[in-house]
């Protein structure tokens, strides 16, 4: 299998509609016949990232690279950045507003869930410039 590259724009502003990019990626991974566990872990990471981009950064972009051995998801936004990454990684810590909470998010589980389901996770963030969350999910051979 050659490397497959996919790009999904994530629109900001509308949290009710968020999740479309993750749904599309999930369908593509299913069509490729990847293992269910891999699809589920990649989908959760992408979905949590997508929700974060909509809540905190008015959208962004997700680039997905699928190799025979791994899926790499790179989610980039031009939002406010994360002041304290260590704090943001703690379960229960959240700066999300009321709207996000009403929709069932903002429980401080987004980044911890991404870490839980990925094999590797990197956060590159700059205050006032934006954040890139990169996630690797290995595909068992």
């Amino acid at each position: 299998m050659e490397t497959i590259k996919l790009v999904y724009p994530v629109e900001g502003g509308d949290l009710i509609e968020a999740g479309e990019a993750s749904s599309k990626m999930k369908l593509t991974l299913k069509k490729l016949g990847l293992p269910q566990d891999v699809i589920r872990r990649a989908s959760i990471c992408m979905y949590e990232g997508e929700i974060n981009m909509v809540i905190h950064a008015d959208g962004g972009q997700a680039e997905v690279e699928i190799d025979p051995g791994q899926i790499r998801i790179c989610m980039t936004d031009t939002g406010p950045g994360i002041p304290d990454v260590q704090q943001a990684m703690q379960e229960g810590f959240s700066t999300a507003g009321q709207t996000a909470r009403e929709l069932g998010f903002g429980a401080g589980m987004g980044l911890p869930n991404i870490k839980r389901y990925s094999d590797e996770m990197h956060i590159d963030t700059q205050l006032g410039k934006g954040t890139t969350v990169t996630v690797l999910i290995k595909i068992p051979q």
Partner: peptide, 27 residues
Amino acid sequence: FMSDVLAFVKNQALLLTGLVNPQVVRT
């Protein structure tokens, strides 16, 4: 809490919720 649900991964599972919005289905 949808993130609680995302932290719960089991095969062939059922979700009970009092929250009503499209994100419940997406989750």
